[in-house]
Amino acid sequence: MSEHLAYVGIGTNAGDRTGNLSRALGELRNAGTLAAISSTYRTAPWGHLDQPEFLNLVASLRTELSPHELLDAFLAIERRLGRTAGERWGPRIVDLDLLLYDDLTIADERLRVPHEHLAERAFVLVPLAELDERFAAMRDALPESELAGVLRVEREGGTMMAPEFSLAISERVRALADFLSSGDAVRVRIVRENDEIEVARRQPYAARARRANDRTAADATRLRFDTIKADLVGIFHLSRPAPSEGETFDADRELGYIEALGIRTPVHSMGAGRLVRIGAADESPVEYGQALFSIARG
């Protein structure tokens, strides 16, 4: 079966909220493999002020399920976690939303992908941009008032994080780098059991922030993304020296090649841009139409 990458938004505002998130993530493992999990965010309720705060996060899931099967799985999880003692169908205390599914656009009576409020809600975009920097520009384009409503929750001993989370070190490094660029710190170190990550900033914060701001302003209007897909079946290889996510190139560059029936077919960047994502592992089999590279242009 082919694997797809889905982004799932999870929110809860009743009962043991941290526990709810943790249980929802546990249940999601039946629908696929958790690839990465964002930080948890507190979202101030608006409208109904008598409601408790929401806790939100976004997880990415590698799955063989179709979008509609995922939707069914989410509804089942919502129902299961909603059940409280003595009450067969308790209130829905956890919400799971399918935000993205590969590069698919779906609009039918049951499902809208990308999620219809994806571009407007800070509690979705802020955690999502943690996992996928394609959404950083959209996040930064949100009005200040919307952004102010979400606050990152300090992690408490990592108890709610899935075992898979330790695999997604690059995602954590990215989150740390985000954190660094948002404050005055120049070095952050996290130590947990046998696991230690240190991230340091190389350039003065002010200069970096200015450049980031300049880029964000321009990005919000001009940035577009190209996905370069496999047009044949074979073994995918990264070119040497291997391209890395975040790398920019001024002209066309060979990023990788597909080896099929003893012939190597190069995969090019198709012009200048910034490599946002490498979609297939080096030396792995790829099928027709599989996303290999995501490139930001402009």
Partner: peptide
């Protein structure tokens, strides 16, 4: 399961190089 091409059969179910490549990998 492996995707071997777009909808039209000439580029998928009749695409000998992609079919053989899938069988080999």
């Amino acid at each position: 399961a492996f995707c071997v091409g777009p909808g039209p059969a000439g580029r998928s179910y009749l695409n000998i190089p992609n079919i053989i490549s899938t069988a080999l990998i």
